[in-house]
Design a protein around this nucleic acid. Structure first.
Length: 194
DNA sequence: AATATGATAGTCT
DNA sequence: GACTATCATATTG
């Protein structure tokens, strides 16, 4: 891989650009990872975002510099990982929802137990478990610590749809996926194409 | 295959 | 005191 590492400059752009651009990129944590195949976009003008009501102790990282990890606990059990976008203060981030396993498969299987490879990292909680991301990595700089993200091959078909697991702003089509990937957390409601 | 439910704890009102 | 940016298991068809 002669892949270009994605740095702060990449993530400083509008989250609406960064989110789909992250599809196909390769995330690796301590050598374990793969291709990003599903993400969601969040921003401050967004009732579903943790940044909606301004900075709080939890969401503070979202308002910090771009290119950092925002990790939070979900439903008391799981970890979910985002990458902060846009200039400092904006409160925008991209939630990493699914990865196609490519490196460190053995390690992922150890951490996830006996599940089919297609479900190793297909979901925000599963992804964090498989890659070993936890709250201790909240605020860490992508590219400087164990977490690396590199540009990947262009994605042939980008799927777009409503986000998962939220109860407000469901009309915003801010979930993005790699068309045809068997590693999506859930299928996209595809418009019938004939 | 689709739907239902319980686990579990931090965050905010 | 209510509400999650979820997941695994159980149940029903």
């Amino acid at each position: 891989m002669t892949a270009r590492p994605l740095d702060e400059e990449f993530f400083a752009r509008p989250v609406g650009e960064v989110a789909p651009a992250l599809l196909g990129a390769v995330i690796v944590v301590d050598g374990v990872g793969g291709e990003i195949v599903e993400v969601e976009r969040y921003q401050q003008d967004d009732p579903a975002s943790h940044s909606f009501r301004g900075p709080t102790p939890r969401s503070a990282v979202m308002f910090g510099p771009p290119g950092r990890l925002y990790v939070y606990r979900s439903y008391g059990i799981h970890w979910c990982a985002n990458v902060v976008c846009e200039p400092e203060g904006a409160g925008a981030a991209v939630l990493l929802r699914a990865v196609a396993p490519r490196f460190g498969l053995e390690r992922m299987r150890e951490r996830r137990g006996r599940v089919p490879d297609r479900r190793l990292a297909s979901g925000p909680g599963r992804l964090c478990a498989a890659l070993g991301i936890d709250g201790g990595m909240n605020g860490s700089v992508v590219g400087e610590g164990p977490v690396r993200i590199a540009a990947g091959d262009p994605v042939e078909r980008v799927l777009v749809g409503p986000r998962i697991g939220i109860s407000v702003a469901t009309e915003r089509p801010w979930r993005f996926g790699v068309g045809g990937s068997p590693h999506l957390s859930r299928p996209f409601p595809e418009a019938a194409a004939a």
